[in-house]
């Protein structure tokens, strides 16, 4: 089975493992992590054809032929993605276990809606949980990233 991950083709033996397990265990892409295992927390968020999904609720077998992007794809030539930079500038993380998931969700949101209201952001990111409680700064970071991307 061939997976297209971050622009490269990878041959994997997935069985009925989840996309998250294959990314982490076979491809060494460990930015996505299991938090809750039931699609509630978003720590395992990855983009499939540009849309955020839960890596823990997707079987790898479901996604051959689709374009899979993980947090590892965002930085290019030593240059952080504007959303990543905004997360640093606005201090939008503490333990950062949830951060890659938030950033990928924000990237997808800003692709869909380049000028979201705060309510739009809350709505879109509401399925990403941050136990440290960095939500206020996450909101600011996404607003700021939106400005920089426009």
């Amino acid at each position: 089975m061939i997976l297209n991950v971050n622009g490269s083709r990878h041959e994997v033996e997935a069985g009925t493992r989840t996309l998250l397990e294959v990314l982490r265990d076979d491809l060494g892409l460990v930015g996505a992590k299991e938090g809750c295992g039931i699609g509630m927390c978003g720590a395992c968020t990855v983009l499939v054809d540009g849309k955020p999904i839960s890596g823990c609720l997707t079987l790898a077998e479901q996604v051959p032929g689709k374009e899979i992007l993980t947090i590892e794809s965002l930085e290019k030539n030593g240059q952080l993605h504007p959303v990543q930079q905004a997360f640093i500038d606005e201090r939008a993380f503490q333990c950062a276990y949830c951060t890659p998931g938030f950033i990928l969700s924000a990237v997808a949101l800003l692709n869909e809606n380049p000028n979201p209201s705060e309510d739009d952001i809350r709505e879109y990111l509401s399925g990403n949980l941050c136990r440290c409680g960095s939500y206020q700064n996450i909101l600011k970071a996404v607003v700021e990233a939106g400005k920089r991307l426009r």
């Binding site: 460990v30 930015g31 996505a32 992590k33 299991e34 993980t70 947090i71 590892e72 965002l74 930085e75 952080l80 990543q84 930079q85 997360f87 640093i88 993380f93 950062a96 276990y97 951060t99 890659p100 950033i103």
Partner: peptide, 14 residues
């Protein structure tokens, strides 16, 4: 910070 936004922090799980 850069590791934190890139998902490369060395958590135990890795």
């Amino acid at each position: 910070s850069v590791a934190r936004v890139m998902g490369t922090v060395d958590y135990m799980i890795n």
